[in-house]
């Protein structure tokens, strides 16, 4: 097996609020192999977006990256100068935003968005080369070339999202981060966009981190899945194995709330309250809702450990049960 493209080690991100630090990502650790598809799921507010933005070093105040390493092909992104980091964004790691967002500059034509992105990294391209390359990209995501002359407000949601995908791959990045790329699209468009994304990813042999809510979609799309709860990664493993035998009680609850694996389903919820990330309870953040909590769960902070080959979990009881 080749060395992972991306290695994330003990990543911590806090939002410094008036009321105290919100620990939105705590000791997040995982590897991403070359052309691997990884899913990241968790309730809204569990820190998924914060984590992936931290990979790009784009956490905005009051948020701050408090520690950890992000190694891209062995080089630590946290050690780069701001200018070096800028050159990585879009060319080595790219972001495909949430579809609901107005991600395109309303006063610029679609074409100029591409030119901007490319020229920010490669000043040597001629006008003709730019035009040709952009044309290919747009075609690759299934759009007609005339969208290039349009302004964002003239595009539909699905078209905009395709434009964002095309922009995300225009410099052949090694890692693509897609933060809920289809959550605001209707079902048919959603499927088309995901197919496009999958096809492109295969062609480029890029790795992808897909953030999402939709367990059904995850099951179909990703190789590996990470479950986040209250700012921590609580379980990580190959998607078939995790769905077949969830090790963390939270994962188990998540999967049990799904009607069936194949049906498209967004999980509705689990009894109990999402813990506040502000004054996080001591011990395992899940213990208040956990059906299997034992004696010291309320004071011990469980660490993500590899209990089976490739299977990581932050819960001692099930780690033992699985062995």
């Amino acid at each position: 097996m080749s060395a992972p493209v991306l290695q994330v080690r003990n990543l911590c991100v806090h939002y410094e609020t008036d009321a105290g630090p919100v620990k939105a990502a705590e000791n997040v650790t995982f590897d991403l192999a070359r052309s691997e598809r990884m899913g990241l799921v968790g309730e809204s507010g569990s820190g998924k977006s914060t984590t992936v933005l931290a990979l790009l070093r784009m956490v905005t105040p009051p948020g701050r990256i408090r520690g950890g390493q992000v190694l891209l092909d062995g080089a630590d992104l946290m050690a780069l100068s701001p200018e070096q980091m800028r050159r990585m964004r879009g060319s080595a790691i790219s972001l495909i935003p949430q579809a609901a967002m107005n991600s395109l500059n309303p006063v610029m034509r679609v074409r100029d968005h591409f030119y901007d992105t490319i020229l920010a990294h490669d000043r040597t391209m001629s006008r003709a080369q730019l035009a040709a390359h952009t044309g290919e990209l747009v075609e690759a995501v299934g759009l007609r070339p005339n969208v290039l002359r349009m302004y964002p407000h003239e595009l539909s949601g699905g078209m905009k999202q395709r434009v964002c995908i095309a922009m995300g791959i225009c410099l052949r990045p090694k890692v693509i981060i897609a933060d809920e790329p289809t959550s605001a699209l209707d079902v048919v468009v959603q499927r088309q966009v995901m197919e496009t994304l999958g096809r492109i990813q295969r062609q480029l042999e890029a790795s992808i981190i897909l953030v999402g809510h939709d367990m059904g979609l995850m099951a179909q799309f990703v190789d590996k899945i990470g479950i986040m709860y209250a700012g921590r990664l609580v379980e990580l493993g190959p998607v078939t194995e995790v769905f077949g035998l969830p090790l963390h009680p939270y994962t188990r609850l998540l999967i049990n709330t799904l009607p069936s694996l194949d049906a498209k389903a967004v999980f509705k919820g689990i009894p109990g309250q999402t813990p506040s990330l502000l004054n996080a309870p001591a011990g395992c953040a899940f213990h208040e809702r956990c059906p299997d909590a034992v004696g010291d769960c309320w004071k011990a902070q469980h660490v993500l450990t590899e209990v089976l080959p490739g299977r990581w979990v932050a819960c001692p009881c099930h780690a033992g049960a699985a062995a």
Binding site: T60, R86, S94, L95, M101, S103, M108, T117, A120
Partner: peptide
């Protein structure tokens, strides 16, 4: 969002300042 995404696309701060933020 488009300013955030412009940064994620690796545009220079100067470009973002004039073409994305100030222009709007």
């Amino acid at each position: 969002d488009y300013v955030m995404l412009a940064e994620a696309r690796g545009l220079s701060p100067r470009r973002i300042f004039f073409r994305y933020a100030m222009r709007n």
